[in-house]
Design a protein around this nucleic acid. Sequence first.
RNA 1: GUCCCCAUCGUCUAGCCUGGCCUAGGACAUUGCCCUUUCAAGGCAGUAACACGGGUUCAAAUCCCGUUGGGGACACCA
Length: 471
Amino acid sequence: MNQVRVRFAPSPTGFLHIGGVRTALFNWLFARQQQGVFLLRIEDTDQSRSTDESIQAIIDGMKWVGLDWDEGPFRQTDRMDLYRSHAKKLLETGHAYWCVCKAEELEARRKEAEAKGVSPRYDGRCRNLGISRPAGDAALRFKAPREGQTVVDDLIKGKIEFDNTILDDVIVLRSNGYPTYNFSVVVDDALMRITHVVRGDDHLTNTPRQIPIFEALGFAVPRFGHLPMILGSDKTRLSKRHGATSIMAYKDMGYLPDAMVNYLVRLGWSHGDQELFTRQELIEKFAWDHVQTSAAVFNPDKLLWMNAEYIKTSPPHHVAQALVPLLEQAGLQEAVESVSGESLAQLVVLVKERAKTLVDMVHWVRPYFGESVLFDREAAKKFLTPTIAPLLQKLLSRFEAVPSFSKQGWEEIFKKLVEDEGVKMGAVAQPVRVALTGRTASPGLFEVMEVLGRERTLFRLRKGIERASTG
RNA sequence: GUCCCCAUCGUCUAGCCUGGCCUAGGACAUUGCCCUUUCAAGGCAGUAACACGGGUUCAAAUCCCGUUGGGGACACCA
């Protein structure tokens, strides 16, 4: 059995799309499971749309999401000689011919055909002209078979039959000497010995165009698998108007790469009722026969839920690490530097049940940096009132009387006070909460005190009393 | 227009290949209740689907045909 070789072959014409990531993911999973080879190839033969920034975006995106490749990145523009020599071979073996039709003419004819409601295909007028050395601009066309059938035995969709009569004589080499997509993929997939071509559904009809080219060149035809598309909530192709589609946008929104991967794979693939998978499980359990055949709607709510799950269950230091850049972006770089990795992980533990994203987490974690805290105006106005000040003062005194902090001990002191004063728990808890965190919502009071430590707790309590007394 | 693909709760899906175990399961979202010092988290419960029409069969979500609906492709883009 030959070693599995798969590839991800994006064109660098913008950011890395989450649909692209999903395609890459299925390839990567299969490669890792089969102990095969996963390679990255940049399809940049459209020089007018390809940019270096986009190539960098692809690489950054792949790295962020943890998809490592074994070979590449290859750039098609570095491989021009290969396409030209293979095009020449097609010409020599009678599988291709020069076409001198002008692009504008073709365009006009296509429009005309469309207007008549006829299939807008190339009419093959240069096919039998036998032009051996074109005088001016000419494109090289592949002589597609005109009878019989091309059968694709798809990994995902099963057997699909195409009548060869629908085939066009596709352009193989543009008049500027650049290969077209349908030709360069074939040459590359063959030369890179790709065993399984797994790509989006939108390429399904390209497959019967490509197979005859493989055959004409004398190459083995790989197996194909076509992944269903990702749709937006209105069931049209996922695009900007449905929300963020760039993988890096999700990084910025505070998503964990593992959550992203889990969600994207699970969108269109299933393993019984299981929702959460480690990467290792994904690699072990992945199977083509459980890849969905129909398109799937991207559901940001479920992704958000999954991200929250990962925030709750990932190792805290791991989450803390991912949090650091976002803290820095939020202007907390000094605070971050003054704090150890361990205490940052402690903060993560403190707030992880409340944060669905790392961006949320930045908000939750903010009150625990620095000596004093910024009071939310509404919160202070409502809970830090002159009426409550004496009670807070009593609490402060009782705390001060204890030389060292203990969570259980201070909780007992607190409850004793509530009991002695005959007030409701909440009547004291909320003002204390505002004094300690500046807000009305926070983790449990005594967890907060534990993170703050004795001195800061007392300090903030005093500050709170000050604020309460002055109104 | 032509060709191709697809069709189970609002969404992701299990079940379909190898008909009976389906009174159609799980998850997200949503609703209610519980827990509770706040906000979350958590627990429990509920609402909610086999697109439609014909066959085949003792029996169809499952097999066959058609209809409808959705998506994709038809470039000197990839």
